[in-house]
């Protein structure tokens, strides 16, 4: 790891101004992606701004028909939240499948979303549930947030403070996990929202994407049979040691199918 200056601000304002001062400063939440990349000298920062001491950034609550999750809420808290198990079990299940239990004990939802790893799990939930990313500056709609490989709409000195999820009628997340890294080879988040179904895929492409053909078919009839005969138009998919693009394309179909089945088996909220 290259050395850096460590900061532990106690307010969002201080954190933002530290970031604003240094072009190569990096905010750190759980550090589960940042520290490994720094350890391998894959990234170099002059300053690390640890967000751990900033109060009121974690917690899960329901407000006006939405679920609001603080940016520093750890995966383990999402996975075990009684509120989520009642209102949005798909998200709890997604969190239960991130990394491993020790990573879930430290990694946070805000950190994961801001990192925008193309194979991370949370981005699929953000897009499928049409969530709003609440930052220190503004609110960003899900579809405008993920802009590329490890790229988001966030400015350098902009921090996520919370994620506001719409509560779907039914939803499910199905992950086909990479056997070595435990990231998603393909993760499919299917959500039956008021009026429309949204399908978001992570792991398969350079960033999370939706599948319009599936969404249309499922909006008409929410059952896996509705997918039969529908040929989804997929972006160019990743190829790596563990899954070629055409295998991934097949896995996308399969995981969407499984997610629909799992969601359809749920009681509608």
């Amino acid at each position: 790891m290259y050395d850096f200056s460590y900061h532990r601000p106690t307010s969002l304002q201080d954190a933002v101004s530290l970031l604003a001062k240094q072009p190569d400063a990096k905010p750190m939440s759980g550090g589960m992606s940042l520290l490994p990349s720094m350890k391998l000298r894959l990234s170099k920062w002059t300053d690390v701004v640890d967000l751990a001491a900033i109060p009121d950034l974690s917690g899960i609550r329901e407000e006006a028909g939405h679920i609001i999750i603080g940016a520093r809420t750890r995966h383990v808290e999402v996975a075990t939240s009684a509120l989520l198990h009642a209102k949005l079990p798909a998200l709890a299940e997604l969190a239960e499948g991130i990394g491993d239990p020790l990573v879930r004990n430290r990694g946070t939802i805000g950190g994961s979303i801001a990192n925008a790893d193309p194979a991370a799990d949370y981005p699929s939930s953000v897009v499928a549930l049409d969530a709003t990313i609440i930052t220190t500056r503004r609110e960003i709609a899900a579809d405008a947030f993920f802009t590329g490989l490890f790229e988001t709409a966030l400015a350098h000195d902009e921090l996520i403070t919370a994620v506001r999820y719409k509560i779907p009628k039914r939803a499910a997340y199905m992950k086909f996990r990479h056997p070595a890294s435990r990231y998603a080879i393909v993760g499919a988040f299917v959500a039956q929202m008021e009026g429309a179904v949204r399908v978001a895929i992570t792991g398969a492409g350079p960033h999370v994407f939706r599948i319009a053909a599936y969404e249309d078919a499922l909006t008409k009839t929410f059952s896996s049979a509705a997918l039969d005969g529908v040929t989804p138009k997929l972006p160019s998919l990743n190829t790596d040691l563990h899954a070629s693009a055409d295998y991934r394309a097949h896995a996308v179909v399969e995981m969407v199918r499984r997610a629909v089945k799992a969601a359809a088996a749920r009681k509608s909220i």
Partner: peptide
């Protein structure tokens, strides 16, 4: 809480 001490400053 159990954590990986190789990934914490």
């Amino acid at each position: 809480v159990g954590i990986k001490s190789c990934t914490m400053l």
